[in-house]
Design a protein around this nucleic acid. Sequence first.
DNA 1: AATGAAATTGACAGCGTTGTCATTATCAAA
DNA 2: TTTGATAATGACAACGCTGTCAATTTCATT
Lengths: 338, 338
Amino acid sequence: MKATINDVAKQAGVSIKTVSRVMNNESSVRQLTREKVMEAVNALHYQPNLAARNLAGTKAYSIAFIYDNPNAYYVIDMQNGILAACKQQGFELLIHPCQAKSEHVLDEIADMVRKTRVAGLVLTPPFSEMPEFVQKIIDLDVDVVRIMSGDVAPDELAPCIMVNDHAASVSITQHLIDLGHKNIAFIGGEAAHMSTVERLRGYKQALTDNDIAIDERLIIDGEYSFESGVHGAKQVMSEDVRPTAIFSCNDEIAAGSLFAARLMGISIPDQLSIAGFENSPFSRQTWPRLTTANQPNQKIAEDAANLLIAKSRKQTAQNSVRHYTPQLIVRDSTGKSH
Amino acid sequence: MKATINDVAKQAGVSIKTVSRVMNNESSVRQLTREKVMEAVNALHYQPNLAARNLAGTKAYSIAFIYDNPNAYYVIDMQNGILAACKQQGFELLIHPCQAKSEHVLDEIADMVRKTRVAGLVLTPPFSEMPEFVQKIIDLDVDVVRIMSGDVAPDELAPCIMVNDHAASVSITQHLIDLGHKNIAFIGGEAAHMSTVERLRGYKQALTDNDIAIDERLIIDGEYSFESGVHGAKQVMSEDVRPTAIFSCNDEIAAGSLFAARLMGISIPDQLSIAGFENSPFSRQTWPRLTTANQPNQKIAEDAANLLIAKSRKQTAQNSVRHYTPQLIVRDSTGKSH
DNA sequence: AATGAAATTGACAGCGTTGTCATTATCAAA
DNA sequence: TTTGATAATGACAACGCTGTCAATTTCATT
């Protein structure tokens, strides 16, 4: 049923090694020979056995995706991006959700690496933002690419894909300011996440740039969840200085804020503007639809995977850095301040 | 860095075959020997090389997940379920999103199978509901488990996990009827999906059981999407016989219906009750929160994966069938008919 | 202590590739 | 035509494990 390289070699009248050369796109094969081989390959539906390749060779044929994130949209986007790169390059993808808090994370990853030879790991927050963790992974002798928040790479440990949350956050806040808002609240995600830190920094920067005083009472700590958005909005809307706009740190929080506003009989965007962040599908499925910033997760992940694959092929040690800035998308949840 | 079976054998003072026996939990190893070996295994952090195992042995150490579904919550749930089973059994998971409409689906899957030896494939709709497709996969000599809608398995091709959408749909419709509704609309998903068919069948059955006439004008074809829900609700609410309740075929459609109702100034649930199906996270994140039926996707997927793993281990040909019935969850989007 | 069956262990080949190195073909220049 | 350099090809040994089958040990019985 499954053809082996031997079958192909016989059928094409060449040695196994020549078939191997063709399958690996090596240059030193005559055009004629190459065609003969490909003909046999197609006729027999030959696919090189991955296990044998892994065992015999030194190249890798798969990459792993490490994450700890409850956000389905985020994970799926990332995954699809990585898969796109994998498909194009003939790689397989291994999925590894982990508990960042667990003491065994590193052991788990180490075990996985010991048994499966991967071209490298795609790390997302919070893993990508833990330098000691990244270092330990590298000590395992695996390549790594980090997707993280920031405008400059924090170190030279490994290639980075930087998401400029700061700049995007300035855009959103500026958008609210342009609509005439002065009392703008900020509902954050987990304070330990760089994305929260960076978005908060952007928010403050925009206020400062426009000579608006920063009011700490309008800045709420939270988590990246709907519930947290409900909670945060309730809290902030019962402050003495009632805000006329809320910048929620992601779309889920924004959806929660929307929910809370509804509970409190506050109409959006007439009495209160709400902005999210991420442009996840449901930012289009709330009522009203959310103003947000588009974070191109799929592209980012594809980029990351390609970086890893390229690095594994070229054996280059160069740590490239890529940059992405989420773009403002104005929808119906933000309006003029009255 | 990476310890091999040889290293362990030396350290433990036994042959590699004995180490192999221990790693595979074979019975004919003396307790003392087993302990010696395990000690060495732990000391060296030995993990059997997957590639070598695949190449040398006849067992499989991974399973594949085939799907074509734009619903992130669904995919993630399924995936997490499969991963849970995999983790427990030391299996790896290969993810394969496919375009059901593409002519190359089968070739893609065939290629994957030719190069990677898997214990089997987990098929979800629409793949699981295409008998010829399933047959062709089986002809490839791969095991398969199907997750699909229905109350009885349609054939003996492969093990099935049946989701009783019919019964669940009866519950939901009955719930609406119990609230006093008589004009109940039904907004369907893709007509080709068995889940749509089954849910429609349940809806009709409940009406019939309660001597309520079926009004075809209240039955709308659609897709499993938010937009389709918006569309369907607008359409059905402009009929002569305005319904007092809408049963949307899944939560996304229900969210869309909610959105449309809001656009039309219809208050939920006072003027209109809306029910969804699936209990996806955002059924809790709409306003008001959706009455729905809980489809335990994660459990279902875990079950499927375990079936596959067990089958691959025991070489048993028995095609087991499992059943799940989604349970009604009453929230705030449905209320008494006035 | 001797016997034999059952339990335990090991030697060795082979899984389907790739890496290394040797061999053969090719072709421009002498 | 011969030569030498280079391009193409092939032979063969790994890679790290499991399957097969043979060898050894164990232990209850004689």
